[in-house]
Design a protein around this nucleic acid. Sequence first.
DNA 1: GATGAAATAGCATTTGC
DNA 2: GCAAATGCTATTTCATC
Lengths: 164, 164
Amino acid sequence: MAVQLDEIDVRLLRELEADADRPNVELARIVGLSPAATLNRVRRLKESGVIRKIAARLDSAAAGFTLQVYVMVTLARHDEAAENRFNREVAAIDNIIAADGVAGETDALLMIAARDVAELQVVLSRLSTRAGAQRLITLLRLGEIKPSSPLPLRATSVQSRRAS
Amino acid sequence: MAVQLDEIDVRLLRELEADADRPNVELARIVGLSPAATLNRVRRLKESGVIRKIAARLDSAAAGFTLQVYVMVTLARHDEAAENRFNREVAAIDNIIAADGVAGETDALLMIAARDVAELQVVLSRLSTRAGAQRLITLLRLGEIKPSSPLPLRATSVQSRRAS
DNA sequence: GATGAAATAGCATTTGC
DNA sequence: GCAAATGCTATTTCATC
């Protein structure tokens, strides 16, 4: 399941997680390979699915979203129909910028961005009514303690590889 | 504070949030500008801070991190020294891949990636001991309900701009 | 103040090794 | 994985609206 990575792959991934806005030749210099070899490795990492995508990370506040909140959701019911309904509502609400199903204190954790309290209020009430949330716990994001950081990757220890 | 964005900026940002792994000429075609003008706009969006960075998003599971958990932390004390200590510990623990300070049920929300339960256990106990956490609530991430989605940006309504 | 078109320099990508 | 070669792109320049 997990993709095999050697030391160079790990270095490439770390660099790309930190900053993917650089020419391939610079990456090549960093990892000590030729541009062609570097390009091949990056392509393989994309195809293997380890790299999901290359994307811009925006500053929500600078873009006008002064309110960022995490909302923990407990569903009223847990049958498949209720979950599908919830998932559809979550997908349809633009201010929910990401959502994960979780196990523990609650059933789901949502990330929400809003321009003002009124906008947030609309989202929360829609979750309570149409989405079937029984209980909402809201955490107002005050600021960043640790910025989004690279995964602590390690090279896969050397071992013979069976044919796939 | 919030940067002024017109319709073309919004379209550029939406495209770059979804996929920044494309040549500038393609972006130019999408938004209907020349490559030069497109490049200028993207550069300005980076300099203004709306675009924080362009980065690779990895698939944690494919990279070997089968356990992804959110941890809500309540600090034992809230003086500045305790907070600094906590922040330093969080920064030093590689498995914590992001952390936000919050207001509400708890004081902080951490995102953690671990290869196995033993690795997770080390992080949690270090938080309880050295980092000064009084209470930890762990949410095991089961799966994605909604993938990381673009911010619901709107163009700033036309208006005269005062000198900065 | 920003755009478009043309020109240059640099890079991505392929091919053969 | 490397080196060389090709084609395309990024980036600048300058005229223009």
